[in-house]
Amino acid sequence: MSKLIPFFFVFMCYGQQPSKEKIIARQGQVSFFSYTSVENIKAENNQVLSIIDLASNEIAVSMLMNAFIFEKALMREHFNESYIESDLYPKATFEGEILDFDPNFEGEQTKIVKGTFSMHGVSKELEIKTKIEYIQGGYILSGTFETLVEDYNINIPPLLRGNIAKTISVDFRFEYRPYES
């Protein structure tokens, strides 16, 4: 009997997992900007997926690189073909935790989201200041952060170095709904 106790414990641990509440955002918005004196580049992705486990405060984000829409149609082709190589690395993902997050706090709070961002085969630790709003049973996460192009092993030919900024600013906004699996 005593040998079975750990198994019960384990079953309880696994058993708790699905019952914990998860919330999902299916049409999250991520946009990025590059400002240079030569040209300004902006791209938007309105199909970003994100999920939060409210019990553990863990968060995951997944976006398709070829779902980014640019001002110019040719930029999208260049972005996918020559820079991000979306045939080889179709997705960018983020996996992390919202630090000191209280799911029951109504109204607005600003928290740090800490985790690993993977894009173009490179993983980076990021800490992102995020505004969390809790309105009518739904959570909205939004924020802005900046990241360096050179961190992600993206090769820009010397002729075009003036067209693409070294620092890219990224905006995001996710509206979460309860997740039913």
Binding site: R26, L49, I51, A60, S62, L64, N66, D87, P90, E95
Partner: peptide, 19 residues
């Protein structure tokens, strides 16, 4: 699990070959 759930959610989005 979280990323797996997202993988599952995104599998119906058609992926066209570009260029």
């Amino acid at each position: 699990d979280l990323l797996d759930i997202l993988e599952d959610e995104g599998k119906d989005i058609p992926q066209y070959s570009l260029a």
